[in-house]
């Protein structure tokens, strides 16, 4: 069952994510960055797919956290401030705090955008962008590219199976090189044949028609959501203005 967050207009979700990402990028304080990252994680928690999404987060977060802590905390420590000796390595609390801000920015970016992507069907997002003026050809190219990727993956797997069924063995570098032609050949030829047939399919779906297209579904929107979107854009502009002001006017 979709949650209230899931049912928000795609642009509302995108606007909220944008505010969080910009705020995290501009935040000068560890505590503020932590709060912003927490807010991004709250959007995940508000989704009905929170379990699935949260299961992927360690793959995103753990390697980056370890790398940044090592790079900022150990390899380039600012030993002039609060140095700590850990078994021959000199750590710096301030350097770790600096690394932590980078980690929080990254986590906010991933959590905010990944939650939007996972809770918004691509076609709905494109529909929303098309209503705001995204050219139809760009919408089509983006959607087709996204939808075709899994299809191509399945095709590549099927080609590998077909060639293995006639004796292809891949065990070493030379064998991998020899396998390229029988594996890539059907993929390319198949894709070229598909292009013609898909073009025919698009013709039969009136894609070349010149009249203004309509939509089968209507995106749910509300006055409150429109206000939120305007507020989000305003907040982003205000934050940008504040940074410019602080940097260049003071």
């Amino acid at each position: 069952m979709p949650s209230r967050y899931d049912l928000l207009h795609p642009l509302t979700k995108l606007s909220l994510a944008l505010v969080l990402i910009v705020a995290a990028y501009l935040s000068p304080s560890v505590w503020l960055s932590t709060a912003i990252c927490g807010a991004a994680l709250l959007t995940t928690a508000a989704s009905h797919r929170r379990g699935e999404i949260a299961r992927v987060y360690p793959l995103f977060f753990v390697p980056i956290t370890i790398s940044l802590l090592l790079i900022r905390g150990v390899l380039v420590p600012d030993v002039r401030t609060s140095p700590i000796d850990v078994g021959g390595f000199v750590l710096s609390l301030d350097a770790i705090a600096g690394a932590w801000i980078y980690i929080l920015r990254y986590c906010t970016l991933v959590a905010a955008l990944f939650t939007v992507i996972q809770t918004t069907p691509t076609a709905q997002l494109m529909h929303a962008l098309a209503e705001r003026g995204l050219p139809r050809s760009i919408e089509f190219i983006l959607l087709m590219a996204l939808q075709i990727i899994p299809d191509m993956k399945l095709r590549a797997d099927a080609i590998l199976e077909a060639q293995q069924s006639r004796g292809l063995v891949i065990h070493s570098l030379p064998s991998r090189i020899r396998a390229l032609v029988p594996l890539i050949g059907p993929l390319v030829v198949g894709a070229l044949v598909d292009v013609e047939e898909r073009s025919m399919a698009l013709e039969l779906r009136a894609f070349a028609a010149t009249n203004r297209p309509t939509r089968m579904t209507v995106l749910i929107d509300s006055r409150a959501q429109r206000v939120v979107r305007v507020a989000c854009i305003g907040a982003v502009v205000a934050m940008g203005g504040a940074v410019v002001g602080v940097r260049y006017l003071s």
């Binding site: 069907p121 076609a123 089509f140 087709m144 075709i148 299809d151 898909r198 025919m200 399919a201 779906r205």
Partner: peptide
């Protein structure tokens, strides 16, 4: 190959 690739349902 007659699937437009544009629609998700």
């Amino acid at each position: 190959t007659q699937i437009s690739g544009v629609c998700d349902t």
